[in-house]
């Protein structure tokens, strides 16, 4: 429960953070909220040689409206997103999801950029980013979400690349995130997000594979006028989830279908 020794540096700008990352090399890690990184370090499952602390980069902790887009700074905490009046109005699904991340301590510390960069299969924001075609902006480039999540805990970020903001579209139509878990503060066993945009449904699935999944077969079925319970049957099309202590692959696929139906129904105000 004691991390291996590491160097620590606190960056005062994104440029400095990038420089520090280049200096320390591949085994350096960015520290934002730390709620995933520090437990891994305590268990010595992660042994970074250096930590670049970006908590001082206050200009990454903000939410900006930009026409039909919302620009969420990478260091924006879950609690800020959860309570933001702009997000509640322009992308209420994101505020709802933020309120379901972990517990109070996690929400007070954890950040948008941290969740996206960590790319845990059970992370909630990656699902939203993928299904809503968000853009992930770094100090070097803009990466569409569909090109960002490569594998379990693996993204297209380079070693000295730092996420600065995540850009979501405005969407305030019917929406719901159904997060199935054993305990209030747990990760999702399976999560399903539903969002109606311009008359069409976007459906995203959490923790049914190494990366988030967009349930395009369900979206298409809904587009063609299927009932939610019929369309939801396609939620598990092509899925091959790994089993774990909480759920077998078969059960995860079943949950994907059931929760998809529930998410669409609940988004439309039905039970």
């Amino acid at each position: 429960m004691i991390p291996a020794a590491f160097e620590y540096a606190r960056a005062s700008s994104v440029e400095e953070a990038a420089k520090l990352l280049s200096k320390y090399g591949e085994d350096a890690k960015v520290l934002a909220g730390g709620h995933s990184l520090i437990p891994l370090m305590r268990l010595r499952l992660a042994q970074p040689t250096a930590i670049v602390d970006i908590n001082g980069l206050k200009d990454l902790d903000n939410i900006k409206e930009d026409g039909h887009k919302l620009r969420i700074g990478a260091l924006t905490r879950h609690v800020t997103i959860q309570n933001s009046s702009v997000i509640k109005e322009k992308l209420p699904l994101l505020a709802e999801v933020a309120g379901e991340v972990g517990d109070n301590q996690v929400r007070n510390m954890g950040t948008m950029g941290g969740v996206i960069a960590h790319a845990d299969a059970a992370g909630d924001y990656p699902t939203l980013a993928l299904m809503l075609d968000a853009d992930i902006v770094t100090n070097q480039r803009t990466i569409p979400a569909r090109e960002f999540f490569k594998d379990l805990f693996t993204t297209s970020l380079g070693p000295d690349e730092i996420i600065t903001e995540v850009v979501f579209p405005v969407a305030n139509g019917p929406h719901k995130y159904v997060k199935f878990r054993r305990r209030l503060f747990d990760w999702a066993i399976v999560g399903v997000a539903a969002q109606k945009i311009n008359g069409d449904w976007r459906i995203g699935l959490t923790n049914v594979g190494p990366t988030p999944v967009r349930a395009t077969a369900v979206e298409e079925a809904m587009h063609k006028g299927a009932k939610p319970e019929e369309a939801a049957q396609h939620a598990s099309d092509g899925l091959d989830p790994a089993g774990d202590l909480r759920a077998s692959p078969e059960y995860k696929k079943h949950l994907a279908r059931v929760l998809t139906k529930r998410a669409i129904n609940q988004a439309e105000g039905r039970q």
Binding site: R182, R246, A247
Partner: peptide
């Protein structure tokens, strides 16, 4: 009595 077990 986990959900997975009961569902099965």
């Amino acid at each position: 009595a986990t959900p997975d077990k009961l569902w099965h």
